[in-house]
Design a protein around this nucleic acid. Structure first.
Lengths: 154, 154
DNA sequence: CAAGTTTATATCGTAAACGACATAGTTACA
DNA sequence: TGTAACTATGTCGTTTACGATATAAACTTG
C-alpha cells in the first residue's frame, strides 16, 4: 500500500485552502488602506449592493454562521460604518444599515477589484481564466452547501 | 458608475474563500473521528510523507508562517503525535519527528481521501474536474506565492 | 390558547491566521 | 576577529471560524 492519496500534492482541499489564503493576503495592502479586513470587506460589499439587510440574509450570502457574523458586525459597527436595529415586523431579526461613513467607503473601495485583476494579470492569470474558474467554483459552492444541508437532517 | 465589480458575484476571492471553508467543513466528520483539525491533518500529511522535517520546511510546504505553525505544532505535540528536537547541525532549527502514535495514525487517516472523493462524486463533481482544477490552482499558488516575494523586496 | 418547536441572534471557548516584535544561533565581511 | 546582517523559531495581540449553548420572539398544533 502506497498511501499516495495522502500526499499533499494529491489533495484537492489543500490548493483551495492555500489559494484562498494567498489571495486574501494579496488583498491586504489595498484593504488596509481603507481600514478593512477581508471578511469585513465582504460584509460591506453585501451591504453596498443591498443596504438594510437582515443579519440572516448577510450570513447566508457569505455562507457564514451567526457566531462568526455577529462579532464581525459588532466590530464594523464600532468602526462607525453600520447601524444595527431590531426589525419591527419580526423582533428577532436585526436590520443592518450603512451609515454615511459606510456609504462613502464604497467610493474608496471601488478601485480595488480592478487593482486586484491587474495584479493577477501581472502574474499571468487572464480574465478568461478567472471567469471560467468562477463558474466552476460556483458549482462547487452549490454542491458543498447542499451537502451541508444533509447534516441538518441528521 | 455602476460599481458592478464590487458585487459579490463578480469577485474571484470570495468563491475561493467559500469553497475552502466548505471543503474544510466537509472534511470535519472524517477528521474529528481521528481527532485532528484540518490544519493539523495537513501537518501530519507532510510528516507522513517525509518524517524528520525542519519546521522551516513544513512551513514552506504549507505556505504558512512560523507564528501559525509554531503553536500548531505545539498542540500536535501535546497530543503525543510528534516530537520536536533542536537540530545538531544548526541549533536554530527544530526537527519534527513522528512518534509511534503519530505513525500509527496514518493507517486511520488513509481512507479519508477516498471517502472525500466519494462525497464529491455524490455531489456531481468528477475526478477529471478535480484533476483539472488541481492543475489550475497549483498555477495560482505559484503565481501568488511569487507575488508574496515581491513584498520581501520592499 | 397553552406547550412544544422553530427561528434569529448572541455569547463562550478553542483553534487558526497573521502582523509586530523578541531572541538565539549563524553567516558575512570589513 | 568582531560586529552587523540574516535566519529559524517563538510569543503576543487581534480577528476569524465554528461547535456548543443560551435566550427571546414567532410559529404550530393539539
Amino acid at each position: 500500500m502506497t498511501y499516495s492519496q495522502l500526499e499533499l500534492k494529491n489533495q484537492i482541499c489543500f490548493p483551495f485552502y492555500s489559494v484562498s489564503r494567498l489571495i486574501t493576503k494579496a488583498y491586504k495592502p489595498f484593504l488596509s488602506k481603507i481600514g478593512l479586513t477581508y471578511p469585513q470587506y465582504l460584509v460591506m460589499m453585501v451591504l453596498w449592493e443591498s443596504d438594510g439587510m437582515r443579519i440572516n440574509e448577510i450570513k447566508e450570502k457569505l455562507f457564514l454562521d451567526t457566531n462568526t457574523v455577529s462579532p464581525l458586525l459588532k466590530r464594523i459597527e464600532s468602526m462607525g460604518l453600520i447601524n444595527r436595529t431590531r426589525s419591527n415586523e419580526d423582533e428577532r431579526s436585526v436590520i443592518v444599515t450603512l451609515t454615511k461613513k459606510g456609504k462613502e467607503l464604497k467610493e474608496l473601495a471601488s478601485p480595488i477589484p480592478e487593482q486586484m485583476l491587474e495584479g493577477l494579470a501581472h502574474e499571468g492569470i487572464t480574465v478568461e481564466e478567472i471567469s471560467n474558474l468562477r463558474n466552476t467554483l460556483n458549482n462547487w459552492i452549490k454542491a458543498l452547501s447542499d451537502n451541508k444541508n444533509d447534516n441538518k437532517i441528521k
